[in-house]
Design a protein around this nucleic acid. Structure first.
Lengths: 235, 235
DNA sequence: CGACCCCTTGAGATACCTCAAACTAAGTGG
DNA sequence: CCACTTAGTTTGAGGTATCTCAAGGGGTCG
């Protein structure tokens, strides 16, 4: 939304062992000795909103650990429009298909400034071949993707548009400041819910009129969680 | 649809090494020596249509390899209705979350008579700990689930109802007799597409009137593939 | 200040849903 | 063997949510 520097910025090489979010990241369970197997540089890269980590169809060369920010996974439809199939948050991993030598299945685009670690696929492969701690992490991460995909389908692509928006808002609640959440462009919201930009806009506007949402700043809102839970149930 | 014996039938213990579909199954890459690690019985179980392999929320005790037939993965919504999130075909694996010690995420129900192999989770775990050939299979199977989930969302839950039905028909085309496909109950079809039973029925009836579909038998149809491709594009 | 982007709002069209009834096929029991 | 039940499909009619097309605001940035 902002858009100061429109470039991805290389921030230097990551220092994984001292990483602040390691306990929730792909390398969570690795031991001191395992890091000896990392033979290629892991770069820290910052993506400004709108910039792509990678594109659908590109040969998968690396996985990305999201350290901060928010990333959308997008597929483009026959008519050129986009459908957002998942959101990645801090601790999540993008582009795991690259570990299997496959092309990327989506285009990954930062929705908010996102600090990432780019891990070459060979690093993951080598670790996976040498430590069961890496398998466990990979499996649970893949399972998590499946879970998220299923939840996305059942909660964001099912029911009335109003219920979908309500469920999306609940999903976006800040984990810390639990009544507040940041939204993004109506077009992106629509692409997550399978509805049009206009419908999304109308519903958000209606929520605001009904005091279910209270605007705190540009696209930052205070949410009436009980009301949202009620709306999320059925129309 | 048929419904002769309404019971799941135990068919005996599987002989994995000689299995006819092993090359496409979870044990595809295993070597002779690996089978020594299988220390618990693998049962062959036949499920008649409507019967559940397992239920959502049950503690996951086993994965199932689908040898023949068709299985739906279902989630139930707040209002009691069902949403089908995936279909499993011969060679696919159901209930992989059990390998991670998690409860089942769905209810798995046979849509057509399904012959399955029930593999206790301990067997998979032990194999995974001892042979990289098992990891590779597990990872690619998990990835496949993600792929299917994403495809389900973008092709069966996006666009007009008519386009969704067309895409579903294309998905159901027999791999061998490539103009023909078997359908199932309109309610199930609706639950896959996120539309009502009536809408599904109307569209199938319309396709039949327009000679896009020609009924060959009970719920068996000949498909005009070109017409379906056209319809799948946009409205 | 004007250009641009995005959000909002309106009005009309329409696809889909809801409720209800008729029809079909297959199973059940007298 | 036939009337009866039952479950699923088809069809109709009316209502409504959502889409489409279009215009009008409110920021932000050059």
């Amino acid at each position: 939304m902002r858009g100061k520097s429109i470039e991805a910025a290389w921030r230097g090489q990551a220092e994984c062992q001292g990483c602040g979010i390691r306990e929730s990241a792909l390398f969570a369970d690795l031991l001191q000795q395992d890091f000896a197997l990392v033979h290629l540089p892991i770069d820290e890269i910052q993506f400004e909103p709108g910039l792509a980590l990678y594109h659908v169809g590109d040969p998968g060369q690396a996985v990305f650990t999201i350290r901060t920010g928010l990333v959308k996974l997008v597929r483009y439809l026959a008519d050129g429009s986009q459908r957002i199939v998942r959101l990645l948050r801090p601790g999540d991993t993008a582009g795991m298909e690259s570990v299997l030598g496959q092309d990327y299945e989506h285009t990954a685009i930062a929705l908010r400034p996102a600090l990432t670690c780019r891990i070459p696929r060979e690093v993951v492969t080598r670790l996976a071949e040498n430590t069961p701690r890496m398998h466990a992490q990979l499996m649970s991460r893949w399972q998590r993707q499946v879970q998220q995909a299923d939840a996305w389908l059942t909660s964001l692509s099912t029911g009335s548009a109003k219920a979908r928006v309500a469920r999306l808002l609940l999903l976006l609640l800040d984990q810390n400041a639990s009544r507040q959440c940041d939204l993004f462009g109506r077009e992106d919201m629509g692409a997550m819910l399978g509805v049009t930009t206009e419908t999304t806009s109308r519903i958000v506007a209606e929520f605001r009129r009904d005091r279910v949402l209270t605007e705190l700043g540009p696209n930052r809102y205070d949410c009436d969680v009980d009301a949202l839970l009620r709306l999320a149930g059925m129309d």
